[in-house]
């Protein structure tokens, strides 16, 4: 019996690509649940609702006859602690409870590579790393709690669960990473480099991340040869091609047709001093600083993961290189930002 899929957060970046890939591989029963209505292929059933509302969620699961839930919905950094916990922990709790009640057999949860992040360098981290005693921020804390909740549920009355810790998602339809990086280019700040750019960083092209979700879902069938390696496990997912921090934005700018003429390197120490001043000025003026000490610290960190476990258990081998991902992302951005592109061509 083929699975019936319900993608929670199907209108989001990752959820949308998961839906696309499910439809593309010929799944006949695919549904989306999201607070925002999205535009989908006509074969996809759409449910609009809030995961914080258990009744709405339960209705969608019942109506769609879901046997496999892929839970990609999440509230990103920058919201209040209360909101972040409500959606990311409370919402996930609802998903788990509804899955139990409705006898769903598979639950794939989208976690974050930062659940083990403690604020310092993290080269080549793998799944043996423990959760930090004190989470780096509310978002990471909430994601870690929710992940443990999902993994703990594995094995409950035929429900199998898995958690995918994705790192640095980007791609077409991205509303965070790519536009932010392109924004730096448009405001002519692309020639500035903070730090020595020796710190490696990890990214994941969105279609690779979506593919990992499908692979994980398939391996949650108890008769799958790799079932035991996957059920109840957490996996780091990235492109497996760490590279120095600044190379990623430069790659995107270049793909959009812009190469900084000259690079001004600002050592980390000096950048910290500038950040303090900018924070002070912003505090006095009551505005938001463009450069904070947190940003400087973050930019100069080494952070990448070891995806061998996913390679072995999920047979996850990224289909698209970062190079290709950058090309596709820039193309999408250019097609959706014609004015910016025109402005860029003028100034070049």
């Amino acid at each position: 019996m083929p699975d019936s899929y319900l993608v929670i957060g199907g209108s989001g970046l990752l959820g949308g690509h998961v839906v696309d890939q499910l439809v593309a591989r010929g799944e006949t029963s695919v549904a989306s649940f999201d607070i925002a209505p999205g535009s989908f292929d006509q074969r996809v059933r759409t449910f609009v609702g809030n995961i914080c509302d258990r009744a709405e969620l339960e209705n969608a699961v019942k109506e769609s006859g879901a046997t496999c839930i892929i839970h990609t919905a999440s509230l990103l950094q920058g919201k209040s602690k209360e909101q972040v916990y409500k959606v990311n922990v409370g919402g996930t709790e609802n998903v788990v409870e509804v899955a139990k009640a409705q006898h769903v057999s598979k639950l794939v949860y989208t976690s974050s590579a930062s659940v083990v992040f403690a604020g310092s360098d993290q080269p080549n981290v793998d799944e043996s790393a423990p959760y930090p005693a004190k989470a780096f921020d509310d978002y990471n804390a909430a994601k870690a709690i929710a992940e443990q909740l999902v993994l703990k549920t594995n094995g409950y009355q035929g429900l199998s669960t898995v958690s995918l810790r994705v790192a640095g998602l980007f791609g077409p339809r991205d509303r965070v990473t790519v536009p932010t990086i392109m924004g730096i280019m448009m405001s002519k700040r692309s020639g500035m480099q903070i730090g020595d750019n020796k710190n490696l960083f990890d990214w994941t092209y969105i279609e690779n991340a979506a593919q990992a979700h499908l692979l994980a879902a398939d391996r949650l069938s108890p008769d799958h040869a790799k079932y035991k390696l996957v059920a109840g496990e957490a996996f780091f997912i990235s492109n497996g091609e760490p590279r120095p921090y600044w190379d990623f934005p430069r790659g995107l700018w270049k793909a959009a047709g812009h190469t900084p003429k000259k690079i001004t390197v600002i050592p980390k120490g000096i950048a910290m001093v500038i950040a303090v001043i900018m924070e002070l000025v912003a505090w006095i003026r009551g505005s938001e600083a463009t450069l904070t000490r947190f940003r400087v610290h973050y930019i100069c960190l080494t952070r990448y993961c070891n995806i061998d476990k996913a390679r072995n258990a999920l047979d996850y081998h990224p289909l698209f290189s970062i190079d290709e991902g950058i090309r596709r992302s820039a193309e999408y951005w250019m097609s959706t930002h014609p004015e910016d592109v025109a402005k860029l061509r003028e100034t070049q």
């Binding site: 490696l200 590279r243 120095p244 270049k254 190079d323």
Partner: peptide, 16 residues
């Protein structure tokens, strides 16, 4: 430098 057509690939191989 970013103007080099092999720029992204060199970053990847050095990262490797």
């Amino acid at each position: 430098t970013a103007d080099d057509p092999s720029f992204i690939k060199i970053a990847a191989v050095c990262g490797r």
